[in-house]
Simulated assay, not measured.
Amino acid sequence: MTVKSIQTLVSEAMQEIKTINADDAHKMVEDNECNLIDIREARELEKTGSVENSVHISRGMLEIFLDPNSVYFQKGKLDQNKEMVLFCAGGVRSALAVKALKNMGYEKVSHIEGGFGAISQSKFKIV
């Protein structure tokens, strides 16, 4: 049995997914073209703060909450017609998460290169 390393999984995912930088993501948020989704764990947000205009869905709940029949869609928290832009702390979890969403059938999905680290050095406001 051969078990793939996290580096291999991320490398494979990166070949299949769309990656954008923090500035492009900020413009998409300003233009109301995306759902900005923070997939970090709650304790990470408590330590570093949240990104203004982002929706928090921890990585472990992502596929459940992004099921079109979920409460997130039913209560209007996410717009299924807009691109789903994901970020984590550094870009590893979000790369794998974008691949998972593509496997679910999402076509307009991307992640932010460098994650929260890059976001905190950009125009985004941390609250």
Rank of each mutant, 00 (worst) to 15 (best):
M1Y: 05
M1P: 08
T2Y: 10
K4C: 07
S5P: 09
S5R: 11
Q7T: 14
L9Y: 06
V10E: 09
V10K: 02
V10D: 02
S11L: 12
S11W: 01
E12D: 14
A13I: 12
A13M: 11
M14V: 09
M14G: 01
M14W: 02
E16G: 07
I17P: 00
T19Y: 01
I20N: 03
N21K: 10
D24W: 02
D24S: 10
A25V: 03
M28N: 07
V29G: 05
E30R: 06
D31P: 10
D31Y: 03
N32E: 15
N32M: 12
C34W: 05
C34I: 08
N35D: 13
N35H: 06
I39M: 07
I39Q: 01
E41A: 15
E41V: 15
R43T: 14
E44A: 14
G49V: 01
S50F: 05
N53L: 12
S54V: 00
S54I: 00
R59N: 08
G60M: 07
M61Q: 15
M61A: 14
L62S: 06
E63T: 14
F65N: 13
F65L: 13
L66K: 06
D67A: 12
P68V: 06
Y72R: 01
F73S: 05
K75M: 11
G76P: 01
L78E: 10
D79A: 08
D79T: 08
N81M: 03
E83R: 10
E83W: 13
V85N: 10
V85P: 02
G91Q: 04
G91A: 09
R93F: 11
R93I: 07
R93E: 13
S94L: 03
S94Q: 08
A95I: 03
A95N: 12
A95F: 05
A95S: 15
A95L: 04
L96Q: 09
A97Q: 07
K99P: 07
L101V: 11
L101A: 04
L101S: 05
K102A: 01
N103C: 05
M104K: 12
M104A: 05
Y106H: 03
Y106V: 05
E107F: 02
K108A: 10
V109Q: 01
H111W: 09
I112T: 06
I112V: 04
I112L: 03
G114T: 05
G115W: 02
F116D: 04
F116E: 03
A118I: 01
A118W: 00
A118P: 00
I119F: 00
S120V: 02
S120M: 09
S122G: 14
K123W: 00
F124A: 04
K125N: 06
K125Y: 01
V127F: 08
